[in-house]
Structures are given as structure tokens and as C-alpha cells.
Amino acid sequence: MITRRAVIRNLVVTVGGGSLLSACGGRVSLETLAPGAPPRFYGDREMAVLSRVSDLLLPRTETPGALDVGVPGILDGLMAEWASEETRVEHRATLAALDTELGARLLGDFLDADSASAEAALSAVDAEAFAGDGVEGYRGLKGLVAQAYFSTEGGAVEELGWVGVPGRWDPCAQRT
């Protein structure tokens, strides 16, 4: 069993610090941004950058991609309703820094770059971030996109093969 403490620790690890745990309290009415509805948290540029990053990270393959399952809308809802002010400020700063960094690497607008170039630039930013440098908050952002994706039916069931109600536990291996 993953214990209570492990769950909390996992949360902290995932979001790259404790800040998301200091979520605003009380209101619980979030859901994914409906198609065509305006974002509640992100500005147009932020939404476009986040969508492009999500699509590059988890594109449609034989299984749904991040945009198919509405990852940007999920994160928009989380930021609008769940995140603390501190988290919001950090998250915006991360998106802006990432946009700037990618633009510098691509010598142009990230949103205009072709997929191969954009992915190469992102992978370089990614490697740098995990080496401990680069865009601050990037690791947390990547984790959030992945979490939002795998928390959907498309991500969990179609992509990962998670089985919701698998029936009784009949393992083929026996304890020796």
C-alpha cells in the first residue's frame, strides 16, 4: 500500500515543491474548459504556448494526444480554481520564461516553428532543466501536463492500459 505519507510526498515531488498544496480553499466546481469557451486563467499567448507544448509532449499517436483529452483546459481550471496565488504567479513566470527561451533557441517565434525544430528545442530545454539549469519551474510544468493527461480516460485507459474494474484477483504466480 502506498501510504498516506507517500501520497503527500508524491504530490509534493510531482508539482516540484509544496506550493500547490497551499491551494485556495473551499470552492470545488472545476472542470475542463469546454470547447470554444474562453480560458479563465491563461491569456491567449499563454494558452497557445501551453497547448503547443502539451501537443509536442503527448501528441496523438495510436492513442489520444494531450489536446484530444483537453489538457490545456484541465490546467486552466486547476489554475483558476485550485492553485494558490503563489502557484499562479510561478506558473505564469514558467510559461513566459519557456516561451522566451524557446524563441531564443529557435531564432523566432516558438509557435511558428515546425514540429521537428520545436521538439528539438523543447528536448534541449528539458535536458537542461533536469540537469539542474534552465527554465525555472519547467520540471513541474512537464509533470503537470503529464498528470492532467493521465488523469483522463484517454490517457489512463487507452494509452496506459489501466483497467478500471478488472474482476477478481487471480494471479498466475504463486507465493513460494
Binding site: 508524491n10 504530490l11 509532449l57 501528441p59 523543447l122 534541449a124 528539458d126 498528470q147 488523469s151 489501466w162
Partner: peptide, 18 residues
């Protein structure tokens, strides 16, 4: 897979996209 899921994953996927 729930919230916090794959929390330990990020360091193992350095540089991975798509």
C-alpha cells in the same frame, strides 16, 4: 492514475518528447 500520479517519473524521462 490519479492526481500526483507519475510523480516520480519526470527524472526518468529527461529530454523525452512525443
Amino acid at each position: 492514475p490519479g492526481f500526483g500520479f507519475m510523480g516520480g517519473l519526470a527524472p526518468f524521462t529527461e529530454g523525452a518528447y512525443g
